[in-house]
């Protein structure tokens, strides 16, 4: 696959890739970096992916893995106390008008709950992947996910009323 073919088949998926990265990482700049890093990884594998039918699935899998790596790294270096505080929106594109209601409600969750919820919901990560990326125990991940989903439902029901 040459450069032009790569741009035609891979680049158009950047919006979807950004959406996943932004949801999983919760930060616009980090999400842009993740998409860029994914492009570099895909470029390195361009000879292998030449024959696949669904580029989008492959692109999304790569960006998800890049995000998991970033979350793992962030967990290693971030202040753990900081991770449990609800964060303000750091993505300038996430306004009330543009942001989907589920993502808006998810912003009200606590740090770990939000992180786990977004990884599972938008990154389509299974519990094992979340365990590996966050370093949390399996039961902890399951519990955080369960509480986050129930909380989102409560918030959604009150939002609808």
């Amino acid at each position: 696959m040459n450069r032009e073919e790569f741009k035609q088949s891979i680049l158009p998926h950047y919006r979807h890739m950004y959406g996943i990265a932004s949801a999983m990482l919760g930060d616009s700049e980090d999400a842009c970096d993740a998409v860029q890093e994914s492009m570099a990884r895909l470029w390195e594998k361009r000879d292998e992916i030449g024959g696949i039918n669904n580029y989008e699935v492959f692109c999304l899998r790569v960006v998800k893995n890049v995000c998991l790596d970033k979350i793992k790294l962030r967990r290693q270096y971030a202040d753990l106390a900081e991770a449990d505080r609800p964060v303000a929106a750091s993505d300038p594109t996430e306004t009330r008008e543009t942001l989907n209601v589920v993502r808006r409600l998810a912003r009200t969750l606590s740090g770990s709950q939000r992180e786990v919820f977004m990884m599972a919901t938008f990154g389509e990560c299974d519990n094992d992947e979340i365990v590996r990326a966050t370093g949390l125990s399996e039961s902890n991940v399951r519990q955080l996910l369960s509480r986050a989903r129930k909380r989102i439902k409560e918030l959604y029901q009150s939002y609808e009323r």
Partner: peptide, 28 residues
């Protein structure tokens, strides 16, 4: 409603201005 909204959020969403050109230059 929640599942439908979530599916919608995955498929569409805002993207920062200039990201496409940044990626285009990066690929070059």
């Amino acid at each position: 409603m929640i599942f439908t909204e979530t599916a919608l959020a995955k498929a569409t969403g805002p993207v920062p201005d200039g990201l496409e050109s940044r990626l285009d230059s990066f690929i070059d």
